[in-house]
Amino acid sequence: MSHDPAGSHDHPHPRQPDIEDGPLTHHMALTEAVAALLQKKGVITGEELRRTLEDIDSRSPADGARVVARAWVDPAYRERLLEDVNTAAAELGIDTGNIPIRAVESTDTVHQLVVCTLCSCYPRMLIGLPPDWYKARAYRSRAVREPRAVLREFGLTLPDHVEVRVHDSTADMRYLVLPRRPGGTQGWSEERLAAIVTRDCMVGTAVPVATGG
């Protein structure tokens, strides 16, 4: 399963120096220094830091995709997911921590889109760290005021009879889009369904498409 569902890693971010070879920037040195001091003072341990880094690396959109695929094939699970994502994810063995995640369901008549205009809140405990564009000014500014134009930039043009419902994650909730199951997927296994649920489908900037053999 690809961990790069957007398929857009062809161009490395130009602002991202290679930490192994380049000079240590001020902020990299600050990071190393804070980590070292916190360990020296016993505030955190090296083991805790290592385990937390492993946990960060272990989270990816694949977990969210499993949850979505289960909701597509199991109506009772879908109900539980819409009630409480954290509990529903735990049923599949995914520990999403204690920040509440809510699912919002896209249908034939409503398309759900998630943004955080004030910072970059994101259901990272279920689908991993957010992409750069989610944290950048253009998306945060424009997704609330001209969502249809933003969606068109992602290649998604929605008809006027579909309500676009934007969720600004302003507080203690994180939002996961439960996308609409596309036609032409009758009889598909959960694994096959999960493979078409990309990260962007769970943010609302894309919709799943029935592709592949």
């Binding site: 991202q16 990071t31 955190i44 760290l129 564009w133 000014r137 930039e153």
Partner: peptide
């Protein structure tokens, strides 16, 4: 910044560098 004018959404991405994940881990801890 919600609602302010801004340019097109740049969808190119970079993989998180080790130091960036370390910042994230420090905050979590």
């Amino acid at each position: 910044m919600g609602g302010l004018p801004a340019g097109p959404v740049a969808t190119d991405e970079h993989a998180h560098a080790p130091w960036e994940k370390k910042v994230d881990a420090i905050l979590r801890l």
